[in-house]
Computed example of a mutant assay.
Amino acid sequence: MNVSVEYLGDKKFKANTTKSSYIMDCKEITPVEYFATGIIGCTGIDLVMMAEKDGYEVSDYTVKADIERISVAPMKFASIHITYDYHCGCEAQKAKRYILSSLESYCTTVNSIRDSVKVSYTIIHNGEKIADKESIASGGGTLLDDGFGGACCS
């Protein structure tokens, strides 16, 4: 992967990837906010792609994160709690499996921080809370072989 950032002036930067580019306006969204949305975007995309691979459609989907940061520089993330709220025709056990597969195996961004950041999650599936403030395993980088092959961010 190759990425670059060019300064355009007035706290604006052009971010370039091998696939595309976009403007980062740091007066509007800070790099830390881009990073945080990248984390939940990656795991969110995994969920949709895994469900689609199994023939299910995801609808009414929102993923949110509550992030605590250490109060002294460099103000690293101390914890992140991710809440998934979506509708899908799959049973609750499979809905939770999609999330755990992403969080513990496939999502590059989550797995890049999980050794140093406490990661927890809540899942609301078809209007019912099926997991509440549960934590993922941290520190081992263990890959689970669940047959999905990494949906996002490879």
Rank of each mutant, 00 (worst) to 15 (best):
H87I: 09
C88P: 04
C88T: 01
C88I: 02
C88R: 02
C88F: 12
G89C: 08
G89W: 06
G89E: 05
C90M: 14
E91A: 11
E91S: 07
E91W: 07
A92M: 14
K94H: 09
K94L: 13
A95K: 05
A95Q: 08
K96R: 11
R97D: 12
Y98P: 07
Y98M: 13
I99P: 05
I99A: 07
I99E: 04
I99T: 06
L100F: 08
L100R: 10
S101M: 13
S101Q: 05
S102A: 14
S102K: 15
L103G: 09
L103P: 08
E104W: 13
E104R: 12
E104N: 12
E104H: 13
S105Y: 13
S105L: 15
Y106I: 15
Y106P: 13
Y106L: 14
C107T: 11
C107S: 10
T109K: 01
T109Y: 04
T109H: 00
T109G: 00
V110G: 01
V110C: 03
V110S: 03
V110R: 00
S112D: 05
S112E: 05
S112I: 15
I113A: 09
R114G: 02
R114P: 03
D115I: 08
D115H: 11
S116W: 03
S116H: 01
V117E: 01
V117A: 00
V117Q: 00
V117M: 02
K118Q: 02
K118L: 12
V119Q: 00
